[in-house]
Write a protein that binds this DNA or RNA. Structure first.
Length: 268
DNA sequence: TCCTTATGTACAA
DNA sequence: TGTACCTAAGGAC
C-alpha cells in the first residue's frame, strides 16, 4: 500500500510506539545486521516522512526506509512473536514491536545524505509549508503528460498510481494532456485536493476518493467492494462502467505503470 | 503448487 | 525501454 499517505502514517506510528525511548534492534533476515547491532539500545528521537521516504532519527544518524512496491511494515503489541526470516529490521521495546519486510532500501544515513534526498524530492502535499509553485514551475513548462509528471517524485513527492488516477478523474483531466496545457487554476485545485485526500488517507490508512454523491447508494447502484480496500472511481476498474457516466473505464500502460481513466469524464 | 500481479525506483544500454 | 530487486496474496490448476 505504499503511497505517500502510508509513509506519513508510518512515521506517526513509529513516533507513537517507539519515540523517546531506547529500542532493541535486530535484522533476522541479515541484510541490515551490522546497522541493527549499532542501533541496538539507541533512543528513537524522531520519525519523518517526505513523499515515499521514511526517516527514523537516532542521535544524528538516520535509518532511511523506502518500501518500494513490495515493502511492508507491521506493528504489534509485546510480546513479539519470533520474527519471520524475511524481516529486514525489527524494533522492539517493552510495549511494542515493529517488523519491516521487503523494502527497496533500508540504510543508515548521515544528516548530509538525508538532506540530499530531500533536495532531490519535489514538494509533498502532506508536508506543511511545501510549496505547490515549485511543482507548477516545472509542470507548466513540460511537454510530458500530466500522468507521467504526477508520478515523478522530483516534481511532486508522495503521489503514487492510485492517487494519480483518482485525482485526474476528480478534476476531469485527460491523463495524456501535456503539463504545459494545464491551467494554473487546475493545478492549484489538484494540489489542494491531493492534500485533502492524502490527509484523509493518513487518518484512515486507506485511499478513498469517491465523493458522497457518487457512492453506490447515492447513485442507486449495487454496493461494491474494491479489493485494495478503498472506494475509488477508476483505479483498477478497467472495462467496468464509470460511476458517473457508465462509459467503460479505459486502461493503458504508461512508463511501465497501469493507467486508468474515463474517456468521457476526462477531457483534453 | 505454480503463476501472476502489485499502491516503486534505479540503473544499463 | 527494458530489467533487476524484493515479498506476499490471490487465482488458476
Amino acid at each position: 500500500m505504499p503511497e505517500g499517505h502510508t509513509i506519513h502514517r508510518l512515521a506517526a506510528d513509529y513516533r507513537e510506539r517507539f519515540g523517546g525511548r531506547p529500542v532493541r534492534a535486530s535484522s533476522p533476515q541479515g541484510k541490515f545486521a551490522d546497522a541493527a547491532a549499532l542501533l541496538d539500545g539507541a533512543v528513537l528521537e524522531g520519525a519523518e516522512a517526505h513523499g515515499k521516504h521514511l526517516f527514523l532519527g537516532f542521535g544524528g544518524e538516520w535509518v532511511h526506509i523506502h518500501l518500494g512496491l513490495f515493502g511492508k511494515v507491521n506493528f504489534g503489541d509485546a510480546p513479539a512473536p519470533p520474527p519471520a526470516d524475511t524481516v529486514r529490521l525489527r524494533l522492539a521495546n517493552p510495549r511494542s514491536y515493529v517488523d519491516l519486510r521487503g523494502p527497496t532500501s533500508c540504510a543508515l544515513l548521515t544528516d548530509g545524505e538525508k538532506q540530499a534526498i530531500h533536495d532531490r524530492l519535489g514538494p509533498d502535499p502532506l508536508r506543511p509549508g511545501d510549496d505547490p509553485d515549485r511543482a507548477w514551475k516545472r509542470i507548466s513548462r513540460s511537454r510530458t503528460t500530466i500522468a507521467a509528471l504526477l508520478l515523478d517524485q522530483k516534481i511532486i513527492a508522495g503521489v503514487g498510481n492510485v492517487y494519480r488516477a483518482e485525482v485526474l478523474f476528480r478534476h476531469g483531466v485527460d491523463p495524456y494532456r501535456a503539463g504545459k496545457d494545464l491551467t494554473r487554476a487546475e493545478w492549484t485545485a489538484i494540489w489542494t485536493d491531493l492534500a485533502a485526500l492524502m490527509r484523509e488517507g493518513v487518518r484512515d490508512n486507506r485511499i478513498d476518493t469517491v465523493r458522497p454523491e457518487h457512492t453506490p447508494e447515492a447513485m442507486g447502484r449495487p454496493p461494491r467492494v474494491d479489493d485494495h480496500g478503498g472506494e475509488v472511481y477508476v483505479y483498477r476498474r478497467a472495462n467496468l462502467p464509470c460511476h458517473i457516466c457508465t462509459t467503460p473505464v479505459r486502461t493503458a500502460e504508461l512508463a511501465a505503470r497501469n493507467l486508468f481513466w474515463c474517456p468521457s469524464c476526462q477531457r483534453r
